[in-house]
């Protein structure tokens, strides 16, 4: 949503809302992955990633979407500002 939309109090149009919701639900339908399974996968991904990097807990987002007929899994994992690399023997 742009500045002018915000200024004029415009919200996202219902066609776009419908399309976004549809994309999300279809990706889950097609992959046969329930929201519960997504949470489980998210927990496991966090566990693996945090062995190597300090992540910001509670801000990790895992989602599925569709782009150009391709289903994609998107992991948004914010990293702590300092001490990004764990372990003293790692080269930077």
């Amino acid at each position: 949503m742009g500045f002018w939309d915000w200024l004029l109090g415009r919200t996202e149009d219902s066609r776009s809302v419908a399309k976004d919701r549809l994309k999300v639900v279809l990706v889950h339908d097609r992959a046969g992955i329930s929201p519960q399974l997504m949470r489980q996968m998210q927990d496991e991904i966090i566990e693996v990633v945090s062995r190597y990097i300090d992540v910001v807990p509670g801000e990790i987002q895992l989602s599925m979407s569709q782009e150009h007929e391709q289903n994609i899994l998107i992991a948004n994992i914010p990293i702590q500002r300092q001490g990004a690399a764990k372990g003293s023997d790692r080269r930077t």
Binding site: D13, R15, A18, K19, L22, K23, Q66
Partner: peptide, 18 residues
């Protein structure tokens, strides 16, 4: 309704169903 952005367009439907 499509013109007013209140309904999925034919292109939207084709885009997801492919």
């Amino acid at each position: 309704m499509v013109k007013r952005q209140e309904m999925l367009s034919v292109e939207d439907v084709l885009d997801v169903l492919a």
